[in-house]
Structure formats: structure tokens, C-alpha cells
Amino acid sequence: MHKPLILLIDDDAELSDMLGELLEREGWHVTAALNAEAGERALAQRLPAVVLLDVMLPDANGYDLCRRWRAAHPSLGLVMLTARGDPLDRVLGLEIGADDYLAKPFEPRELVARLRALLRRQHSARADTAALCFTGLSIDLLTREVRIGTRAVALTSIEYKLLVALARTPGKPQSREQLNGEVQNGCYRPLDRTVDVQVARLRGKLRDVAPGADWILTVRGEGYVFVPRE
């Protein structure tokens, strides 16, 4: 049975040892690196299923690494680990391409649960068709490339995830809580307008390329729905 490889990049040697033992007990292979340089070498030798990446490394900024690795490896799982618990830091990490964001100190079992969820999503994406195609709009699930006609649409990680979540169920409204769960783990707060803000940005980018076109509609009292164009 294939065991996923987890690449752990954190300069805290004691934490790395503890997490490495925990993840190996879960049945995963683990490679650890204490700095960005060692992490780069490990990534070049073998592409892991998921990278656990500390934001504050001694020789690099984790956000910069996340942005670069997401562009180079669209299907790579990226989970940010940080002692900075500010919600804005979390949003930044997700915006630049992280799949998840965990603030230290965290419960080890929560990390395991989030990794399992991410690996399930990766497996599901590989099992799906390679693309979602509609009149005028295509979404490549392997490269994360979105096109309207022949023109590429540059989306953030959150915007891409929202579009895919909606496009997978055309004509079926999804609540803000459901969509929030697609882009970030954690409890949904009814007054949180993150989904509304991100959907507005997504709509704006689609309209910039195709003025007058609107694939995403608001459903009052429910959330949003993807409506394919005729």
C-alpha cells in the first residue's frame, strides 16, 4: 500500500522529532528539514504529498516559499505552521496558496485530522475528471488553471477553491458555511464575511475577462450557486 510522503520543514528540532514520530505512527513517511535550504533539496529529490511549512524559518520567509512552490507544483499539499495567530496572517497564507494554516501551539491530533482531510481531497481530485468544462469556461483540476475562452484567469488559492466548489455542483446552491469549509478548516462564524468578500473578488475577476458574464449568482437566504451559461 502506498504511503504518502510528508515533508516537515521547521527549525524547532524538538518539535520536528515529536511530529515526525506522530506522523510515522499514523502510517506516513516523513522527511524533516530544519531550514529552507534543506527543504528545497528534499523537495527536489522527491515531491511529497504534503509539505508542513513553518512560516518563520532562519534562512527564508515561509510565505515566499509557499507562493513559489504553489506556482511550481499546483497539486502539492501545503500546510503552514506558525506561532503567529493573527487572522490576517491566516488569510494571507491561504491567499498565496496554502491549503491549510495551523497556529502554534496546536493539538497534535488536530494536525493529523487536517492532514487526513487534505490527503482525502487530493485523492478525490485525482479520481475526478481532469477538468470541469462549461460553455466559455474551463477549470483544469490538475494545473489549477482557469480559462475563459483562450484567456487565463489569475485567481488566488481561495478564489480557485471557491470556484471549484461551486462548479462541481452547478445549479445547486451552497451555503456560506459549506463554502467556508471548502477554503479553510475551523469553526464557521455566521457574522464572518470572508466568503462574501472572496466571492465578490472572484466574480470581479471573471467579469474582467468576460464583461457581462456571471456564472456565480447570489441565492438570498442560502448562499451562492454556479449557473453554467447557455
Rank of each mutant, 00 (worst) to 15 (best):
residue 168 R to A: 01
residue 120 R to F: 02
residue 141 L to W: 08
residue 93 G to M: 02
residue 152 A to C: 07
residue 12 D to A: 09
residue 140 D to A: 10
residue 45 Q to K: 09
residue 209 V to R: 11
residue 87 P to C: 15
residue 185 N to S: 09
residue 138 S to C: 03
residue 83 A to G: 14
residue 43 L to F: 09
residue 229 R to Y: 03
residue 170 P to W: 14
residue 84 R to A: 05
residue 157 S to G: 07
residue 220 R to A: 04
residue 121 R to D: 11
residue 89 D to Y: 03
residue 210 A to V: 08
residue 207 R to Q: 02
residue 168 R to G: 00
residue 32 A to W: 01
residue 205 K to T: 05
residue 125 A to I: 07
residue 139 I to C: 09
residue 9 I to P: 04
residue 75 S to L: 15
residue 41 R to A: 14
residue 129 T to K: 15
residue 67 R to W: 06
residue 158 I to K: 02
residue 167 A to Y: 01
residue 11 D to S: 02
residue 93 G to L: 05
residue 4 P to Q: 15
residue 183 V to T: 06
residue 205 K to A: 04
residue 23 L to W: 01
residue 219 V to A: 11
residue 206 L to W: 00
residue 53 L to K: 02
residue 172 K to W: 01
residue 183 V to L: 05
residue 56 M to H: 04
residue 69 W to T: 08
residue 30 V to E: 05
residue 71 A to G: 08
residue 174 Q to N: 09
residue 140 D to E: 09
residue 193 R to Q: 10
residue 205 K to V: 05
residue 55 V to G: 09
residue 127 A to I: 02
residue 143 T to D: 10
residue 41 R to W: 03
residue 94 L to H: 04
residue 167 A to Q: 02
residue 13 A to T: 14
residue 96 I to N: 02
residue 31 T to S: 15
residue 115 L to T: 07
residue 19 L to Y: 06
residue 101 Y to Q: 04
residue 140 D to T: 06
